[in-house]
């Protein structure tokens, strides 16, 4: 747990903001953005978990003794994957929103009330 309070604080702040926006937002895209913000915050959190103060990139080298202070590479790899997945998710979400706009003629979430009975 080498990341500073700043990293943790800001990433948690981003996550909370994301959720808040997603819950309070009325516009579909706003909700999507909230979710995305949540994802970003999460990714940042993961990165900061693996962060080592003053560490270097985890690259294989001929001189391993120089790089004593290496950040954990796995979170970074995970986050890379997570980012890609997040993008895919966003793409799918935005595609759905586009279609919704086409069919409903509005992006107001309060108007999406077909499914009740």
């Amino acid at each position: 747990m080498n990341g500073g309070l700043l990293f943790y604080g800001s990433s948690v702040f981003l996550m909370v903001m994301g959720i808040f926006i997603a819950i309070t937002g009325k516009h579909l895209i706003k909700i999507l953005l909230g979710i995305d913000l949540f994802d970003v915050g999460l990714n940042l959190l993961i990165i900061s978990f693996g962060y080592v103060n003053g560490g270097t990139a985890p690259i294989f080298s001929k001189y391993p003794h120089i790089f004593k202070n290496v950040v954990d590479p796995v979170p970074q790899a995970l986050v890379l994957t997570a980012i890609v997945i997040g993008v895919a998710e966003m793409a799918m979400g935005l595609a759905i929103v586009m279609k919704i706009k086409e069919k409903f003629g509005t992006c107001n979430i309060a108007k999406l009330k077909e499914l009740k009975w």
Partner: peptide
């Protein structure tokens, strides 16, 4: 691609996205 399907899909997406993000956090 009708209204009901899109609405259902969107709802599923919102919950699913948050759920899987939390799942990732658990893994971490």
């Amino acid at each position: 691609k009708d209204r009901k399907a899109l609405e259902g899909g969107f709802k599923y997406m919102v919950i699913g996205a948050i759920g899987s993000s939390l799942y990732l956090l658990g893994i971490i």
